[in-house]
Simulated scan of single mutants.
Amino acid sequence: MNLLQDQLQKICKLVLSTSANHSNVIPEMERMNFVLQLDACRNVSVPLIRAQDLLTTPGFSLSRKTVIFVTGWGSSINRSNAGPVAKAFACRNDTNFMVLDAANFIQTFYTWAAVNTDTIGRFVAQALLKLDRSYVTRNVHVVGHSLGAQIAGATGRYYQQLSGGAQLPRVTGLDPANPCFYDGFKKLPGTQSGDAAYVDLIITNPGLAGTAEDVGDGNFFAQGLAPIKSGCTGLDAIPCSHQRAVDYFTESVYPNNTQNFRGNYCAAYANLWTGRACTRVRTAIMGYAASRSGLYYVEVNPTENYGKEANPDTFTPSNSACGACNLNS
């Protein structure tokens, strides 16, 4: 895996140093949509180029906050990890939840998809500019996994640039993709502090599929710098660990689970190796309710409930009826 990472970084440097088109699959804003969850069973697509139509779409409410979820490399709107996240937000019933449908622009050769994250983020920012600025700067939260996390960060950077300095309130990076980012690439800097008023990262496969950098405002390292999470074994250990960031965030979205993950503050990055020197006096919540800045070591369980602070009497499991589609109801 380390050899593959090295080779991807070399390819990225080569691609980004050329003056030719960086990707053979060029993103087109006209082919991207926001897929708005209307209820547990129904959704509707709104083109990015007509994002203002959201304001008159039944099921979208300006009295609610909006979460935009961006999936990772190789995913599509019909084949992604967005389903469990959508179910958790449906259980909350207090959020406009949308998934970015980026068509085939992240379903291609990895380095091309990585380069495309910047353009896709700009398109999403341009779409948000079609909405009321005061609403967007108070209520829009962009959440992304892997390459989707890099799109989320680019969205925040471009929104600030194109709006003349206005910021999104929050960007959450779920194990932001590591290859092609955070290695001196000025064109692909990666999600980081400053992309929104608050940038929180949940890091679960550091140094492999996900970054090991503490570049957010709130940096939450589940089990520290161990790249493989408890409960992930065998040939699936790396993708399982990379996915865990989504699993932890999803668990934290359910109303009864928002306090399930508590991280201990680490004064130095090296403390993340064991977490023993990280203080239990200064702590912060990881996931949906995150709000604090700093570097945190978070203990997790190998299976659901993943959060160590979960209350067994009130815990909502991912297979609960809450938020699920029931066509017979």
Rank of each mutant, 00 (worst) to 15 (best):
N2K: 08
Q7Y: 13
C12F: 07
L14P: 00
N21G: 09
N24P: 00
P27E: 03
E30G: 14
N33D: 06
N33Y: 14
V35A: 13
V35P: 02
L36E: 08
D39G: 07
R42L: 11
R50N: 15
T57N: 03
G59Y: 08
G59K: 06
F60A: 09
R64M: 12
K65L: 02
F69S: 02
V70A: 05
S75V: 01
A82G: 07
A86L: 11
R92I: 07
D94S: 15
N96T: 07
F97N: 15
F105W: 05
Y110D: 05
T111A: 13
A114W: 03
V115M: 06
N116V: 08
T117Q: 01
R122P: 05
A127C: 09
L131R: 12
Y135K: 11
V136S: 13
H141K: 04
V143I: 15
G144L: 00
G144N: 00
G148S: 03
A152P: 09
Y158D: 01
Y159C: 09
G164I: 13
L174Q: 09
N178Y: 15
P179K: 09
G184Q: 00
D200K: 00
L201G: 03
T204K: 10
P206N: 06
T211M: 06
V215Q: 00
G218Y: 12
A226E: 07
P227K: 11
P227F: 10
S230Y: 03
G231E: 04
C232D: 04
I238S: 06
P239C: 08
V246A: 01
P255A: 03
P255E: 04
F261K: 02
G263H: 05
G263L: 11
Y265G: 00
Y265S: 12
A268P: 00
Y269N: 10
A270I: 12
G275E: 04
A277R: 03
A284C: 04
A290Y: 02
S291T: 13
N301G: 08
P302E: 05
N305H: 08
Y306G: 02
E309H: 15
A310F: 04
A310R: 08
A310L: 01
D313H: 13
S320R: 06
A321C: 03
A321V: 10
C322T: 01
C322G: 01
N326F: 10
L327S: 08
S329Q: 09
